[in-house]
Design a protein around this nucleic acid. Sequence first.
DNA 1: ACAATCTGTGCAAAAACCTGCAAAAACTGC
DNA 2: GCAGTTTTTGCAGGTTTTTGCACAGATTGT
Lengths: 249, 249
Amino acid sequence: MLKKERQAYIVHQVNLHNKVLSASLSSEIDVSEDTIRRDLQELAEEGKLIKVHGGALSHALHDITYPSKKVYAQDSKKIIAAKAAKLIKDGMFVLTGGGTTIVELARALPVQLSATFISGSIPAIVEYMHHPNIEVIVIGDKLSKNSRITVGADALARIKSFKPDLCFLGINAIDPEHGITDNDWDVVHLKQAMINASQKTVCLTISEKLKSIQPIHVCDLGQIDILVTELSADDPLLQPYKNAGIAVL
Amino acid sequence: MLKKERQAYIVHQVNLHNKVLSASLSSEIDVSEDTIRRDLQELAEEGKLIKVHGGALSHALHDITYPSKKVYAQDSKKIIAAKAAKLIKDGMFVLTGGGTTIVELARALPVQLSATFISGSIPAIVEYMHHPNIEVIVIGDKLSKNSRITVGADALARIKSFKPDLCFLGINAIDPEHGITDNDWDVVHLKQAMINASQKTVCLTISEKLKSIQPIHVCDLGQIDILVTELSADDPLLQPYKNAGIAVL
DNA sequence: ACAATCTGTGCAAAAACCTGCAAAAACTGC
DNA sequence: GCAGTTTTTGCAGGTTTTTGCACAGATTGT
């Protein structure tokens, strides 16, 4: 990895998470902490960030206006993203849906990961675009404004033409009895196509949605392979899903 | 391998992957690293890429990671965008390419405009997404990181299936004699497909590029209908294009 | 206060770079 | 066609940059 590239990544991380730790950057990028420190120092001199003991902070954090446009339950989603990111290995083809959890997953991907991501979600694509070693394939079609994902016959047909290793879905409702449900007709079709195309399906959800139901049926529990929540794997809430044969992280 | 050919290959690699390493290029093309270094140096002087220790980076990476950096000649581009926006009427189907000028156009669209935009440029799509009355159709395919636009056979085929009223292209080089030229093989194909599909083609460019030439031919002047620059329509620089039958704004 | 962590400095090895040079290739004018 | 010139390329050398490590001093939290 080039020095400039590394520094660009650090700036990106700072802007994204408002803070970075020297130690975690060091292990992420796989260089010594000394190098990270030297990078932070240079970037601080250029005014790109603010260096503090143990890492660096973004300039925005020092601003008076700390906008509370926080994503709902963002902390939980970060935990989910970190767990899910570990499932992706170098060289994989990964299909992802939309939603804030998927965006968090995109942000949590390690720098050195070299994989191909297929998606129709514009916010997710924007995140993938920033990762140096990730190839992006955009699924085209009409853009649904509220979900910010492409939907329609074209998108469905294109998804069918792939055979990705993994598929990540952020889901709105899951229930041991009724399986996965949703409330948007187009998005339901998309999710079904994605599940059918993929070798393994991973569902991401915050625990709050673990026993909820929406009007449209997406698929039964049998069709999903892995469920990721912010809870620890032995939480009693997850037992019904383990009983259904789903691996729980 | 010819020198020009080699340099074109390097530029293409940079456009595609956002970075190149001197060492890997050297073994790929089978020339010494010194030669690669000299190439990178020349290309950097021409502004085609950014040379760094160990290789080179694309300009796009810098734009992405340092968003504070001003878009080149942004004031001129805002003027161009304002003029171009007037061409779009309610109900139209509009095909747009990529580039900062197109993004400015997207920002300059009036709120009440209700039209359908078709594009493969991610930054442009992000802008369209924010407009309440605009429908967006995304052209899918592999994402070229440098130009942040989808390129490939799929994108070309999809463009051919539309018959939009207008097509807006941000162009890198135009010349009264050689017409429109560019430097990225994939983008050239895209532009050609867009021009052929559309009923009318509108080219946006800052005056600085009015008499410049790039290595790959896109189309002749006869194929474009309207040229928009930041200059006033009676500027002598624009006379050759008016003589060629192009409407100038 | 003390232990753990983080920081700055100096140093050494590796990698990348620059300069000058010479051979080979391409071009030029005759 | 051919001698002379220019361009291109690889190589040898010496220089600079980058990076990891060691160690001593500073900072932090309990």
